[in-house]
Structures are given as structure tokens and as C-alpha cells.
Simulated assay, not measured.
Amino acid sequence: MQRGVNALNGSFNRKKVSGIDYWYFQYTGANSKLVQFFVGPDSESLRKLIDEKKAAPDSTSLRAMAESAIKLGCRPITNEHFKVLSPLEQHGLFAAGAVLVGTHAFIAYGNMLGVRWKDQLGTEDLDFAHAGRSVSVALPSNFSLNTQDIVHSLEMGFLPASTFGKVFGGSFVHPKQPEFRLDFLTAKTSESDAPVFNVQLGTSLQPLPFIHYSLEEVQQVVLLSSLGPVFVTVPHPARYAVHKLLVFGERSGAYVVKAKKDLDQAAALIEWYLNNNSAVLLEKESVLIGQGKGWQKRYETGLKALANTYGQLHKRLELARASFRPGDVNKDDGWASE
């Protein structure tokens, strides 16, 4: 309630239902439609909360807690990225099924797993992934969200990505900072690489192969900045790790730097799992390998790169694989638990 009430500009409204008074909070969303959510039945404590909201609408308690967490060792995201992610979260993008991928997810893993990565693997990319049509069936029939309108409402100057006059769906770039991008991705389900328009999100998504593997198990996490926290959804960290090895072989040419980053991030997470819960990592690996020969071939390429760059870590992984049995997995691995 503190998060919902203090982060939005709106008003409280009381309604009588079956003779009982209930409170609701309403505000105007990015699509200019009125959004209303249930607060609770009328009570003295709830009225006190409402009075406090009216008296101090700009509470900074969550911001102060975020700053404290950063001072205690949690790694933050940049304030510039927070200014993009926070409005997208408040307007329901992640509730709609969007999943944050790339280095921002990797940052969240370090904070949640209680480790500080050795390398500062930062990036100017903001990559988003959404399962597209396969997730839309879980959305309410009256759900609508225009992502492009929200991007424009950021008032940060983002424009649709284009090359030689051709506009590419699913990506927005900052004209003064070409490396600062918003990429909306989805799983590739056909031979075409053409962007796919998603009705629920009101924007086009760029299809990518293999990405659906990272979207089958997700978790909500908090990213921190000096401006406050933001609530996002990310892939399971073990799936993220083995997926990074899979896509390593796909990188070439201008993407060699990203390939190195893929390998480094995979190695960091693999090391954590080998030290703490190797069975979970190996179970996610077996699921990936079971996707087919094409997946196996690419994953083997990633494993070879891991052996060449992180030889001792690769040996530990091989030893763990040799002794792994599917029954070793504790289904409650602590990641998805409340």
C-alpha cells in the first residue's frame, strides 16, 4: 500500500457496497484512462493512512531505504535507467508479462544472491523480453496498454530505431546517446525476423531465437537506484546462466563484446550455483539440452568457450555433471519462494 499510494498522483474514493463502506485509489494512466484499485474496507487505521497521504504526498521512505541498501553493498542501476524503468513498471508493463533481461537482470541477481560480482559488467542497453502471443491468453479480455505512448510520455527524447530511413519495430533509441536503447523482444516462432505487433502491449516486438527458454520461469525482483526502488520481472538466474552460454555462439562481428559479456555473466552465476546449489543449475541445463540437437550444438560451443576462458570452473562443472541425478533437485530452490 505504501508503494502504491505514495508513488502515484491520484485520489481516494469511498464506495458503499451492500451497506459496507470501501475505499479505492484512482489515478490517470498513460493511456489517459482512469485506473482504480481496491484499498480496503473503511476503518480508523485506513482513514489515518489516507490522512497521512494527503498531508505528505511525497513520502521518501522507500527512496531512503534504497539509498541505505546501496550504502550497505547492493549494486544500483543508473538514475537514467531508473527514470525509464519506473514509469514502465508503474503503468503495468511488467504486470502485463514483460520480463527484463540482460545486464539489469544480472545486477538484480547479485543483490538477491548476496554477492558482489568481480567485474563491473554494465551496459547502456535496456533489453526487454515478452513472450508475446503465448502470454496474452492469461491477460484480462479488457486489458490494454500502449507501450509506445508510455515511451513518449517519458519525455526523454526516445525515437523509433531506424537505418537508412527504414524504421525497425521493437526498438527505441536516444538521438543524443545512440547506445541508450529500449529493445522490446519476443520469442521467434517462425522463419521471419520481422517485428510482431502485440495487441496487449500496443507495440511491435523483435523476435529472437531461443529467448522463450528464459521466459518460462520468472521472478519479481527489486532494482535499486539513489532515486528509489523499481519492481521488475526477470528470468530464473540458473536459466539465465545456461542461456547465456547458448547464445554465446550466436554472437559474431560487432557483437563480440556482448559475447564476452555473455560468457562472463554465465561464469559468475555458474560459480555461485556450484558453490551453493549445483543441482538447480544442472536441472535447468538438462531442460535446455532437451530442446533439440540445434540447442545442444550451440550450448557445446558455449561450454568450449567456458573451458578456454575459465578452465578450472569448467572442470568443476564437468565433475558436478558427472554426479548429477535428476532426483537431486530440490524443487523449492529458494528463488521462487515467497
Rank of each mutant, 00 (worst) to 15 (best):
E80M: 06
I77W: 02
I211T: 14
E124T: 11
Q206C: 07
N111V: 04
F25V: 01
L282G: 08
Y24Q: 13
F168S: 11
K293H: 02
M65P: 00
V17Q: 03
E67Q: 15
V196I: 08
F82C: 06
A55V: 01
C74L: 07
K331N: 13
E191F: 10
V196A: 09
D125P: 07
G327C: 02
K176C: 07
V101H: 00
F82R: 11
G169P: 03
A66T: 08
M1H: 03
Q296A: 14
Y240M: 08
S144M: 04
A7W: 11
L246P: 01
T103R: 05
G10S: 04
K260C: 08
A56Y: 10
G202P: 03
A64Q: 08
Y109K: 05
K166L: 11
E89C: 05
I70D: 10
L274N: 12
L319E: 14
F197N: 00
A305S: 10
T28E: 06
S141C: 02
V196L: 08
S141L: 15
Q219A: 09
S141D: 09
L113T: 05
T123S: 15
K54E: 09
A187Y: 09
A108L: 03
Y109L: 00
A98D: 07
V84S: 12
A305I: 04
G292K: 08
W295D: 01
F231Q: 13
G290T: 11
A131G: 05
W23N: 06
K16A: 10
P76H: 01
P237N: 00
N277E: 13
S45G: 02
L274P: 08
M65Q: 14
Q296C: 03
L269W: 04
E80F: 08
V280C: 12
S323A: 13
L113W: 02
K16I: 15
N330K: 05
H104S: 10
S141V: 11
M112A: 09
A259Y: 12
S18V: 11
K15N: 12
P140V: 08
P195M: 00
L159H: 08
K304L: 14
V280R: 11
G253Q: 06
